[in-house]
Every structure is written in structure tokens, then in C-alpha cells.
Amino acid sequence: MTSESTERINAENITEDEFFFGHKACAGCGGSLAVRIALKVLGERTLLVEPAGCMSAVSFNYPQMSFSNNAIISAFAGTGAVLSGLKAGAEVMGWKDYHVLGIAGDGGTADIGLQALSGLIDRNDDVIYLCYDNEAYMNTGIQKSGLTPFGTSTTTTPAGKKGKGNLKHKKNLFEIVAAHDIPYAATASIGYIEDFANKIKRASEVRGTSFIHVLAPCPTGWGIDTSETVEVAREVVDNGLWYLAEYYDGEYHINRKPKEFKDIHSYIKRQGRFKHLDEEDIKEIIAQRDKTWKRLQQYSVGQ
């Protein structure tokens, strides 16, 4: 893959046009910010598919549709397949100059949609798959998904007398996707919005399937103030619990490697979903973080 062909997107040059508005997302929703920015980068000639999840629930309510581009809902498990169908249809119809984008949540991607996503990457159809990760099934009321981190209290992993919330670590989705030898995969955070926007742009320039996993906090499910979404999404990168990376040409690249990780206590303590965690749990979270980074650094080039 060659380096980016055109100017980087930034706050100055990103379009003023909006393609996602009038929706019913909660105040401070990180997922809706990811959708808004992705469409600003890709533009009106984008064929969008969304399965069941927060973003489709808030935006496809007849007669109040919230996308000014073409959009369609998929069965929950079907995002990867509908993407291939849209692309194949657009090709046989002879359409030119368009993007095909799928946007699914963490459950819709890492759990129920994982098989169709794997099939999509295997076919290597020229589409973009965006997973907005708010770390639980938020639309149905905060249930654990495969991307819910260790220690999270959800309505299906409630922290109680015995439990510490979710006992499983986050599924390693980025590396699962990369293991398909996908042309382009990246992680991002809505806390680093310029990085995210430029990864969407880069994905749109790749031939074949590209995948972006963007962390998108949910004030309702995480127990933070609606004004804290972006700040928390930055902090999780700065403390190393999330990372900004890319995979292309068969190699991993870490985009942002903090010299020193920010202490994770403030990140844990400010969120309602983690308020039951003690020092021992925090040690476990740090150990897992360090293990992930060690592995990533071994994989990555230019370290």
C-alpha cells in the first residue's frame, strides 16, 4: 500500500455538509459521532448498511429517516453479506464513484456478525466495514458483548457480592480481522477524531475490504457525564487500554505509542460501570494491557 494520496483531513478542511441528523441518539453518544464523521469523509454517494443496533434504532424510524445518503438495514448477523450484495449490485448496475460502508456495533461485529464479516473479508469485496465499539449491547440495555472489557458491570454481568462484573477480557477483534490478511484494518478512537477521519479516508482509497474498529464511549452504559465522551475516549488511548494501530501490506503499525502510559485509576474511577473495582482488579487490568502492548510491539514494524 502506498502512502496517502491526498491531503490529510482536519478540522479546517472537513466538509460542512451533514449526512446524519435528526436522529434519536442519546446526548453525548460516541457512536453517532463516529457515524457522522465517517459520512462526512465519504460523502453523499455512500451506500450504507447498518444491522440492528443503536445506530439503526435511532435513525430509521419511519417516516423520520436520518441519513441523507442511501441507507439500508440488515438482519443483525448480516452486515458483511449485505455489503457484498450492495457492492455486487452496484457493479452490475454500472454505478461509478461511490463508497459502500457498513456500520455495526461491537456485538453486531465481534459476536453475531463475526461469521459474515469473515466471509466478507474472505471475498475481499471493495467495501468499508466500520465497527463502533461502545463495549456492550447498549441498544437493548447494556448487556455484555464479546468486546466488553474485564471488570465491567453490565446488566448481564452485574457486579454484586460475588462477582466483579465481566470476567472475560475484550475479544481481540483487530487481530482476528488482520489474521484474514485483510488489505487494510485500523483501530481508532473518537477521542482522536482526526486520526479516525483519516483512517476512514485511507480505507476508502484501499482496493478490497477494509475494516476500522473505533472505540466510541456511551455515557448511558459507561456511567459518565454526557460531556465526558470525547475526553474519556482520549484517556483510554493515553493510558494504553486502547491503542491506535493499522494493519496493511501484511504488517502491523502502531500509530501512537505513549512514552509513558497515563495512570489508569482516573479512567476507572470516573466510570459507573467500573466503580466496584478494587486495587487487585486494577492490577489485573494493567497486566492485561501490558500483555497486549508487548504482543503488539513484537508484531509491529518500526518499533
Partner: peptide, 13 residues
Amino acid sequence: HSALMAAMGAAAT
């Protein structure tokens, strides 16, 4: 499942 979802996506065009 994907066979019919892919057909739906294509039919939508």
C-alpha cells in the same frame, strides 16, 4: 443466512 442477506443487498440496487 449470508446468501439471502447478500441477495437482499443486491436487490436493493
